[in-house]
């Protein structure tokens, strides 16, 4: 455990020293405070912030993940020569990156909100956004790590990681829409709840939108969603789905690295 903590600590400081993560946090600080101060309407700025978070957090996590994994390859090889458990090395690197990304994301948004001094209800909405953003960071970082370990070629790995992000962010929704149009004659509300559960970005979006006034626009579909996600059980299921998105790739990743010949 000690070796794991040491590696996490090392990766964490290593990443902080590169300034990129700091910039990432500063970006969120700037955008959150701009939205909160200049729009005047909390809900509106939260919706805009949601758009930014859902676009940027997965993308940046993917890019950072692949870059970090490929760039620290030499150091990884050095570590592999030491008497340390393999899983500790890779888990440590993953946790170091994820924690630093999460931290700067949450600090960026959180600081802006603390200065803005919103109400309790607003802070619960914002907390939800931070939670979803953090989970997305963890998900897309591990996906990026998994892809990087599968492909020796840097460019190929990078391309495929981006493709996965593109699938989750855009293509999935396009196929979803096509599915809804094709099977329009059937009652699709429950099916669409199911489809949403499989995409972490869609799931985060719905989880936050349902808490806001925008939910009224969803009409009957919204009522079905509300009925599912509004319950304790639905919330549990959706967070389980998000956590599964971390755990499953993580297991695959650990298994892959423990058998990989470096």
């Amino acid at each position: 455990m000690n070796s794991l903590a040491k590696i996490v600590k090392y990766s964490f400081y290593d990443i902080l020293r590169s300034w990129w993560v700091l910039l990432y946090g500063l970006f969120f600080l700037a955008i959150t405070s701009t939205l909160l101060y200049f729009s005047g309407d909390f809900t509106k700025s939260l919706v805009s912030l949601l758009n930014v978070v859902l676009l940027l957090v997965p993308l940046i996590s993917t890019v950072f993940g692949t870059m970090y994994f490929y760039n620290s390859r030499e150091f990884t090889e050095l570590l592999l020569a030491q008497p340390i458990k393999r899983s500790h090395i890779f888990l440590g690197q993953y946790l170091g990156l994820t924690i630093s990304l999460m931290l700067s994301f949450c600090l960026g948004i959180g600081l802006a909100f603390v200065v803005y001094a919103g109400t309790l209800e607003q802070s619960s909405h914002l907390f939800m956004l931070m939670l979803c953003g953090s989970l997305l960071t963890a998900i897309f970082t591990i996906v990026a790590f998994l892809v990087s370990v599968c492909f020796e070629d840097k460019i190929k790995g990078f391309g495929i990681a981006i493709l996965i992000w593109l699938c989750a962010a855009v293509i999935y929704d396009g196929l979803f829409l096509a599915f809804l149009v094709v099977f329009n004659d059937y009652p699709l509300e429950k099916a669409s709840v199911g489809i949403t559960l499989f995409n972490p970005i869609d799931l985060s979006r719905i989880l936050i939108l349902l808490r806001l006034e925008t939910a009224a626009l969803l009409g009957y579909t919204g009522a079905v969603f509300e009925k599912f996600f509004g319950t304790m059980q639905g919330t549990l299921i959706s967070f389980t789905a998000l956590v599964l998105w971390i755990i499953l790739p993580l297991i695959l990743f650990i298994r892959k690295v423990s058998h990989k010949d470096f």
Binding site: V170, D173, L177, L180, S192, R205, T214, L218, T221
Partner: peptide, 20 residues
């Protein structure tokens, strides 16, 4: 226009796909 035809497609509101 799509939404009037397929009301369920409203679940995609504020998604990147719709923005695109």
């Amino acid at each position: 226009y799509l939404m009037e035809d397929v009301p369920t497609s409203m679940v995609l509101i504020r998604s990147l796909f719709i923005d695109l």
